[in-house]
Design a protein around this nucleic acid. Structure first.
Lengths: 128, 128, 128, 128
DNA sequence: GTGGTCTAGACCACC
DNA sequence: GTGGTCTAGACCACA
């Protein structure tokens, strides 16, 4: 079944995000072949132009490269993947800080709460 | 102006979230009157029934109370608001941890990254 | 505003019940004049025939008597009122027993629960 | 065949009561499947939305749980059922006391009358 | 087929 | 005007 997209955010950007995450999480490995634009469009139930635009952008960022006739592949540039990973993490972190501040937490408090939660998790893991 | 809703998440739940956040963040103060069901429905461009459902749920949770003909008001129970704030924070924290782990960060790493980011923020604030 | 009647129970019976209760509870005193059929019908928003039927029945039971031109009056027969009171009480008691048995209570249990509740009530009264 | 509802009491509340009673009285057993929303609505001659609302509320109280495509089932939590039974009994008792007091009975008297009635019932049972 | 959500529009009681 | 209830009918995901 198709993923569902957020309204008010361009679909091609969401598509890029989706593929990026699969790359940095290792779900898609370096050198692996991507489905064709047509297939991608069908999978995501999206206009082929939209899929094309997303892939072009990923290519521009270097995460994907195309070989004329063979199709598109995930980059082998581990450093770039790592950079992308860092970038996505940065977004998560900034978003987290923003949301916690909206809830009235100071930086010290949110850090403290996070540490507590992590400690609690570890304790549960030990029990298992 | 209408807010836009996420697809595949019930609108009434998103409405609840939206109002909850405004309450815990202080944007809506205890005792303050909420817009009427009809106004809220119009603001969010949603059916009055859907708005009614969301408000009824908030009332069930005690964050809001209704006075027959006068309208709905934010609870004066500061403790409850505080509890809700804690709960929302917990969700943010858990979500943050999950997302960072999906990106391949260990607990130590994500904590470290967060601390760095916070320190950087502080330095920027000092410069201003 | 008009009382509201249960469906599926003849309205005139409900009217009779309503007046009976007012008599035995003392809300209507012996010898007191009742409103005219026409007024009663209007008060209860009921067809005058229905009100007439109810009053006729109350008269048959002796709780009400009519003086040709002066109207209808509550009986002065204290004994009869007392009997009616007993009868209504009997209905309440039977209904109570039935309902409690439906909930799976034995006679001993329902008696015990009732006693406990009454004791609790008394204790609260003493505190005041 | 359709049940008939009291006027001026929300139908969905009466629906809830009706199902609750069937659960606590054992007419509906733990784990047993309930009719579908649509069937219930038809049985009670009520809009599906209204039936849905009642069932959702029962679910919120934990007396019922739903399995996506299979239907709704009575909870297996005997303790909860017991609690509900106690609660319903409490309502019956309070209502009984109120009504008897309205008829001018003191607590001692109403207790006495109830005991007499129960003894009379037992004697009748023995004769059979 | 199931539960769940949503809209459109109506009616009511309260004041 | 307010909140609250109800109906009629639609659409969706799940399996």
């Amino acid at each position: 079944m198709a993923e569902v997209f957020h309204p008010n955010i361009p679909i091609y950007l969401q598509l890029i995000e989706s593929v990026k995450r699969k790359i940095v999480s290792g779900e898609l490995s370096p050198g692996q072949r991507l489905p064709s634009v047509r297939d991608l469009a069908q999978t995501y139930e999206v206009n082929p132009n939209t899929a094309q635009r997303a892939l072009a952008e990923l290519e521009r960022e270097g995460l994907v490269y195309s070989e004329r006739t063979a199709g598109r592949f995930i980059t082998n540039d581990g450093g770039l993947i790592e950079m992308t990973r860092t970038e996505l993490a940065k977004e998560q972190i900034e978003n987290f800080i923003t949301e916690m501040q909206r809830l009235g937490f100071t930086n010290e408090q949110l850090l403290q709460e996070l540490e507590q939660k992590l400690k609690k998790e570890e304790r549960q893991d030990e029990r298992k």
